[in-house]
Simulated scan of single mutants.
Amino acid sequence: MARNEQLIRQHKILQLLEDARYGRTLDEIRDDLITDLGLSKLHERTVRRDIEALQSAGYDLDVETNQRGKVWKLGRVDRGIHKISATATELIALSIGRDLLNPLAGTQYWQGVESFWNKLEEEVPNGVYDHYSKFRETLCVYGVPTKTYEKHAGILRTINRAIVEHRIVEIDYQSPGRAASTRRIEPYGLAIYQSSIYVIAAAEEVEDPKERMRHWKLDRFTKATALDEWFKPDPDVDIQTHLNRSFGIFSGEATESVQIRLSSFGAAWVREDPWHTEQQLDMQPDGGAILTVSSAHPRELMPKLLSLGAEAEVIGPESFRTAVTDVIARLAKTYSVQPAEGQ
C-alpha cells in the first residue's frame, strides 16, 4: 500500500476523533473511513495499525471500555493544540468569508469551515463574541448564489482521493444541451470560480499536451469512479500558472490578447470593478480607454461585454469581434419579434 494512502487515512482518523466527543469504536472509524475516502473495503486490522502508528508518533489516543465496547478518543493534550484566540474584528472577517463560501455547503470544505467556526465560538470570551455580534448585524453579505454541492459530496471525495493518489477517474458527464458521456480523466486539482467548483484534469484520450488540460464543472458530474489505474503527472503542469493564463475558467493553453474600446462611462466602470488582475487599461484623451485582457474563448468575455452594452466595443482579434457580432444579431432577431398577446 502506498505511503500517501496511509497518511491520508491517519489524518482522517484524527479528524474523526476530533469531532467525536464520546469517541469511536474501531468499527465506526473503519466505516467512516470507507465512506469519507470512497474506499471499497478496509480491514479493522489496518485501522488498528494506523492508530498504533499515530500513538508512536506522539499523538495522545486513549481507549476506554463502555457500553459500546472499546472506544478510542483523542486525549485532552491534542485537543488543546487547537485552542486559539480571536478579536472581534477577526471574527467579523472570518464570518464574512464563511458567508461567501455558502455554495460549498455539503462538502468536506464546508464541514471544515463550520467545525473551525464552532471551535472559535467555544473559545473566545463572551465579551469578545458579544462585541462581534453587535457589529456583524450591521454588515450583510449579498450576491452569493443559492446553490449547494451536498449531492456531489461523494463525487468530490472520490476526486480528492484520485488527485492525491494520481488515479484515473471514470466519470459520467453531461454538459447543458448535450447527451451524457462517459470519460476518463487524470485529475490534477480543483478550482473555485464564481461559486462553482471545477476539476482541473487532463482528458486521457487527447494526445496534444497543449489541449489535454480541461476544466470540468462539478455540477455536471453524475458519477465518478476512481479506477485501479494510475497516471504519471506531467511535471510541466502547474495549476496556478495554468489558470492564470486566461480571463476566466475556460480551458486551453492558447490564449489571445483581446483589445476592447471603452467609452468614458465604460472605462469608469472597469476602473471601479477590474475584469482581471493582469488587465491593461490605457486611458485615451476623450476619457475613454483601450482595455487589453487575455482570453481563451469569446464566451468568457461575453457577459462582461454585454453588461456594458454600447459602452464597450471589441476591436481585435477579428474572431472575438465576430463572436460578439453574432450574439448581437441573434439578440436583435429575438427582440424584433413581438410577443404574443397575453405572454
Results as ranks from 00 to 15, higher is better:
Ala2Met: 10
Arg3Asp: 09
Glu5Trp: 08
Gln10Glu: 11
Lys12Gly: 09
Leu14Arg: 14
Asp19Glu: 15
Asp19Ile: 08
Thr25Leu: 14
Asp32Asn: 14
Leu33Tyr: 12
Leu39Cys: 14
Leu42Cys: 07
Arg49Ile: 15
Asp50Ala: 13
Ile51Glu: 10
Glu52Asp: 14
Gln55Ile: 13
Ser56Met: 07
Ser56Tyr: 03
Gly58Cys: 09
Tyr59Ile: 09
Val63Leu: 08
Glu64Gly: 07
Val71Trp: 11
Val71Thr: 11
Trp72Cys: 14
Arg79Lys: 15
Gly80Thr: 10
Thr87Cys: 08
Gly97Phe: 08
Asp99Gln: 05
Leu100Ser: 14
Ala105Cys: 13
Tyr109Asn: 14
Trp110Gly: 02
Trp110His: 08
Glu114Ser: 15
Trp117Gln: 10
Lys119Leu: 06
Pro125Ile: 08
Phe135Gly: 00
Arg136Phe: 01
Arg136Ser: 06
Val141Tyr: 01
Gly143Ile: 07
Lys147Thr: 15
Gly154Pro: 06
Arg157Trp: 13
Val164Arg: 10
Ile168Pro: 00
Asp172Trp: 02
Ser175Gly: 07
Gly177Ala: 01
Ser181Lys: 15
Arg184Met: 06
Ala191Phe: 07
Ala191Met: 06
Ile200His: 03
Ala202Glu: 05
Ala203Phe: 15
Met213Val: 08
Ala226His: 00
Trp230Ser: 05
Phe231Lys: 01
Pro235Met: 03
Asp238Tyr: 14
Ile239Cys: 09
Leu243Met: 06
Glu253Pro: 03
Glu253Gly: 00
Leu262Pro: 04
Phe265Pro: 00
Pro274Ser: 03
Pro274Arg: 12
Thr277Met: 11
Gln284Glu: 13
Pro285Glu: 10
Pro285Ile: 01
Asp286Asn: 10
Gly287Ile: 03
Gly288Arg: 05
Ser294Ala: 02
Glu300Ser: 03
Glu300Gln: 07
Leu301Glu: 03
Pro303Tyr: 09
Ile315Val: 10
Glu318Val: 08
Arg321Ser: 07
Ala323Ile: 03
Ala323Arg: 04
Ala329His: 05
Ala332Leu: 02
Tyr335Ala: 06
Ser336Asn: 07
Ser336Met: 00
Pro339Tyr: 00
